[in-house]
């Protein structure tokens, strides 16, 4: 992929698909889905700062986050700490690969994981949104451009 000014949907779908296949499994692929509301139980966010500033957020309902953690760690009953860690690593991989698409010199923050939604800064502008579905439920990945990046939960 060549450097871009802002990630596009195709970029995010490609990155998410690769992360999913590598760590969750190739037998149940992640596919684009309709934009439908779901109860966000877990969110993970990473901030990108530098020549481009923004935030990448992954949101999942409870059962989806638990199932993804279970597949990722090969354990039947993940604890809340396991789920938090797995969601953090998923957004870290998605965000890290999004960052590498962007022009310029940029740094990636450590992931922030929240029960419920992570709230982007007030001046954040959504530049890309991927609504996705896998066998265990929906998830959403959004990329926000911000003047000064940061996340609050």
């Amino acid at each position: 992929m060549s450097a871009v000014e802002a990630p596009e949907l195709w970029d995010v779908l490609s990155i998410a698909g690769e992360v999913w296949t590598s760590f969750i499994g190739s037998d149940e692929p992640l596919v684009p889905a309709a934009d439908e509301a779901f109860p966000v139980a877990w969110s993970g966010a990473v901030s990108v700062t530098g020549d481009w500033s923004g935030m990448v957020v992954v949101e999942m309902p409870e059962h989806c986050a638990v199932a993804a953690t279970s597949r990722m760690l090969l354990i039947d009953e993940p604890t809340q700490a396991d789920v938090s860690d797995a969601v953090g690593e998923l957004v870290n991989m998605v965000g890290g690969n999004v960052k590498c698409l962007l022009f310029g010199d940029n740094s990636l923050s450590l992931p922030v994981v929240a029960l419920g939604r992570v709230t982007p800064p007030g001046d954040a502008v959504e530049v890309c949104r991927a609504d996705l579905q896998w066998s265990q439920g929906p998830l959403r990945i959004t990329v926000h451009s911000v003047a000064h990046s940061g996340a609050t939960s």
Binding site: F23, T69, M72, L73, L74, A81, D82, D85, A86, G88, E89, N92, L110
Partner: peptide, 12 residues
């Protein structure tokens, strides 16, 4: 790695 999940995957 600071991620327990990633350490678990690599450990396996």
């Amino acid at each position: 790695d600071d991620s327990r999940a990633m350490r678990s995957i690599l450990r396996r």
